[in-house]
Write a protein that binds this DNA or RNA. Structure first.
Lengths: 186, 186
DNA sequence: TCAAAAGTGTTTATAATACACCCATGG
DNA sequence: CCATGGGTGTATTATAAACACTTTTGA
């Protein structure tokens, strides 16, 4: 009572995940089938919340992480919510900087590649991922490097996301406004 | 009571617009600021509804059409809903076949161009619009032609949308799955 | 024969993928 | 000096925008 839906979900989530660790939260959809809950007539507004890969919150006993491709049985219409969230994440990864919400503060391209591959559900080329995100100025180098692993190999450069807030980076894929090309940064 | 939100909005809209004329309806967002309504605590779920350009429904006296760029003062937080709907339409026009919801059953490319231009808010080239929508197989020719106007000019061929339901036509703009190119229709 | 409107052919720009090759490190 | 992993250079491909030019009509 007296909260927005977002404040409410953040407060409820705080029992499971420290709110300061939530890197992104967005509304998905309000479900309204009168039969969705067997006992009473109830609306539910679903949200997608993301947490960076380097936080591993202590979870209460009734709560656990599950691979998105291998979920246990879910109550009511919750079955449809998870794919909706995943689809939203998948889509936004390709035209926004939303990767910031999955990655730690600093990371190598390979590490980021693995996060994208997990979220998208298919292989991602580190070469191309780097080029796309650098060209769009979503990433910037930190100058630092990660030490080599125990098996050797060239140490990877560390990058960070330029801004920790959602930005659209590929606004007009098609049917974009006419006129002379926008000035490149000079 | 007993309706989904969508059934409810369709029923309410039926007083203004014949439901059979609604070509598209999709949920936008649920607004939940406790102060959004001055009298009582109230949630609102906003929808985007579209009507083809060739229907001109009889409206009740308290209702009217307004240009989206020149709206009268709106109640409560309704000010933010209209831009959200417009933005959604703009975005989906570029990666889906949503144009079907704006256009009559048959139309020339020029007529369609005018609808896209109005919805997008900038000029659209009929040449390029035709190429994009034909390549994506969103449009198909009917074989018929529109008669010339009073000032002459070559008569335009008539087209229709291939499917009258929302389809994503440009799914993987970037970060698409690797592998050999998907087979063209052969 | 001219103006208006539609349509086609072709060039150009750009972005992304694919792939070959080079670099830096540990054992 | 070799295996391992990271990174760069470059070719290829795809898509869309831009623009010149041709076609079809009415007056």
């Amino acid at each position: 009572m007296g909260d927005t839906l977002e404040e409410s979900i953040r407060r409820h989530l705080a029992e499971k995940v420290d709110v300061r660790e939530l890197s992104h939260l967005e509304q998905l959809e309000t479900l309204s089938d009168p039969a969705r809950s067997p006992k009473e007539w109830q609306l539910a507004t679903a949200y997608l919340g993301l947490v960076p890969s380097d936080v591993d919150p202590e979870l209460p006993g009734d709560t656990d992480w599950h691979p998105v491709d291998d979920l246990p049985a879910l109550a009511f219409d919750h079955e449809s919510i998870v794919p909706a969230g995943r689809e939203r994440l998948r889509a936004k990864l390709s035209y926004t900087n939303l990767g910031f919400a999955l990655a730690p503060a600093e990371f190598t391209i390979s590490e980021l590649r693995d996060l994208y591959a997990a979220a998208l559900g298919h292989d991602v080329s580190a070469t191309n991922l780097q080029r796309v995100l650098l060209r769009r100025e979503v990433l910037e180098p930190t100058g630092r490097q990660r030490a080599s692993g125990p098996t050797g190999g060239r140490p990877g450069s560390l990058f960070r996301f330029r801004t920790p807030e959602l930005e659209i980076t590929d606004q007009f894929a098609v049917l974009r406004p006419p006129g002379p090309a926008r000035l490149p940064v000079s």
